[in-house]
Design a protein around this nucleic acid. Sequence first.
DNA 1: CATGAATGAGTGTTCATTCAT
DNA 2: AATGAATGAACACTCATTCAT
Lengths: 195, 195, 195, 195
Amino acid sequence: MRTREGNKKQDILDAAIQVFAESGYYNAKISRIAETAGVATGSVYLYFHNKEDILFTLFDRIWLELSEQLQVIVDRQDITPEQKLDGLIDMVFGVLTNNPSLAIVFVNEQSHLIQKGVGDFNVYYENFLDLGEKVLQEGMDNGEFSPDINLKIIRLFTFGGMHHLIQKWAQSPDSYPVEVMRQQVKSLIKKGIKI
Amino acid sequence: MRTREGNKKQDILDAAIQVFAESGYYNAKISRIAETAGVATGSVYLYFHNKEDILFTLFDRIWLELSEQLQVIVDRQDITPEQKLDGLIDMVFGVLTNNPSLAIVFVNEQSHLIQKGVGDFNVYYENFLDLGEKVLQEGMDNGEFSPDINLKIIRLFTFGGMHHLIQKWAQSPDSYPVEVMRQQVKSLIKKGIKI
Amino acid sequence: MRTREGNKKQDILDAAIQVFAESGYYNAKISRIAETAGVATGSVYLYFHNKEDILFTLFDRIWLELSEQLQVIVDRQDITPEQKLDGLIDMVFGVLTNNPSLAIVFVNEQSHLIQKGVGDFNVYYENFLDLGEKVLQEGMDNGEFSPDINLKIIRLFTFGGMHHLIQKWAQSPDSYPVEVMRQQVKSLIKKGIKI
Amino acid sequence: MRTREGNKKQDILDAAIQVFAESGYYNAKISRIAETAGVATGSVYLYFHNKEDILFTLFDRIWLELSEQLQVIVDRQDITPEQKLDGLIDMVFGVLTNNPSLAIVFVNEQSHLIQKGVGDFNVYYENFLDLGEKVLQEGMDNGEFSPDINLKIIRLFTFGGMHHLIQKWAQSPDSYPVEVMRQQVKSLIKKGIKI
DNA sequence: CATGAATGAGTGTTCATTCAT
DNA sequence: AATGAATGAACACTCATTCAT
């Protein structure tokens, strides 16, 4: 029974992260999410249109956060494209490993969104990838990165690789130390795209 | 509607690939799969224990094929580890882009399996990753690949990257030509892990 | 179609008595019970775990009522064991012939419960038989009833005989007048167990 | 895989007794009965119209046997009605306790038949009760049994009582020794209906 | 805004019965 | 006669969503 008004929507989202992570989207019951959030079942529908809307809102927020943080990195004038790439990788691992349940939902339920293609979340998703592309482009323009790389492909590959690592990490955090993952990915990518 | 004996199980699997690809596992109806396969609903249960069993069998077969083909590559004595890596990448793209629907199912429904961890398919999956690791190890041993790479992480990253590329390719094959994907991935990985 | 609160569970039980009596337990459809009760199919599951639970609850209530009423008879100090036996017989016929549908369910579906042996209903059942045994024992102790009778067997035989009579009565009430049944049973039992 | 021809129908009946006794009529699968009988599923339908027909045939046979044996007793000229009553009781216990599985089916699945009222088995059932009635009538005519007894009711009560005892006996044979049951029932009935 | 009882459409699974061989 | 793979109707149960309070 949360006290402060105005937190209910966030409470429900937080509850949904937990429940989706535990059971997966399709096996997650609205009643369970409501219970976890400390609200009545029907109240969920005061804040969300339907079950899918909860998931979309979650992704929306994740992509927004990733996008905003990446924007800061991209906008910096004091670091090289290579350093920006490092920052990007650190940031993604940071955001997702910061909340294991969220990471699980993020990597496991991706496909629902792809199949629909609806919602604003796509804006942030595309925006995120575009920013990543910008970093690569910048590096190509100033000769740091190889002119032969296909931006769209490399950005997808890199994102998919990290995505998969985080999925495994969420299952057994001890087997895949975050620090080692970061360092390996940075090294691989940078060597891989340099001139 | 009798067809030649011995094809029903495969007919159902083929139908399941289509239906799972179209609707996703949870929205796929057994009755639809049966209809697509040209059999009665009940017949599905002559060949599979339940819905989940169909999905597991599909994955089982994919991993088995990937495993078998990779084994051939790994066993070759006439090519270098680097060439084996090229072969691995070509093979994975080949197998999965050969059947777009299968590729969609493969990349979208992965999470169900991970959450369960049952079935022999895990054997093939682990086997596949072990073989990939063997290629990398071989290259490290003979000085072709950097001694600093973490095998487990690199193999997961690489697989996740290809996985994601194939997911995008399955959505819009024209935006991501298979040839370009192969070449880019080969180039990135090889440069990324070389000395 | 809201009715006064607190009646739904009883409405469903009443409907189940009718439907079970008409079709038998296995041929009774939940949807039919719900319809008869004036509620939606799903509502049945708000009050009962599953179909079996409805049946068990029915038996639970019947045995409870039989038990409670018998307890009153057993506790009386102003009548002889023989009179208590009369009272017992009157009571059982009274309770069951009061609701023919209930009687049908009671006598026809007994076997499901016996095969399971779960639920509290067993408590009331055993309790009922124990109380009946007590009446017999009392009569044996004060020399009214023969010392040669085997309590367990006589109580089961008597109950089974009444049970069967009620089954026939439920099928054609006119062929087996309740009054005659009562009188005949009383007479047979009392003469049969007296010294 | 039975060998001698001409036994299949009986094999299936024997198998059905076992399976019905174990699982109850509704939970018994035709495939299981066939398997137990050592024939193919479809073969069951060469000998029986449907599942119900198997049950009806079983009851048919039991009632026929009970009827035939009772006929012998009734026809004897050398014993009194009281002795015939003893014989009847011995015979019923004998037939049913001879095959516990059969007894279980007999007592548990009675209700299916009653609800239908079809099949020839009714003939034998009625015949059996009529023969029992004849014994009682004979005793009333020669002054051994009370003229006040209602034949239909007493015969049903008696049968129901034995029926219930056998049901309990089938569940735990050790708690209810057949000899004691016989003796108690004989004593109760005879004392109960005598002048 | 909040509740949670009520709804009823939707579907995986079973199994008696059929029939091509 | 015998088989057993195939059929498809049937139904218990679930749960996202609604709405009277």
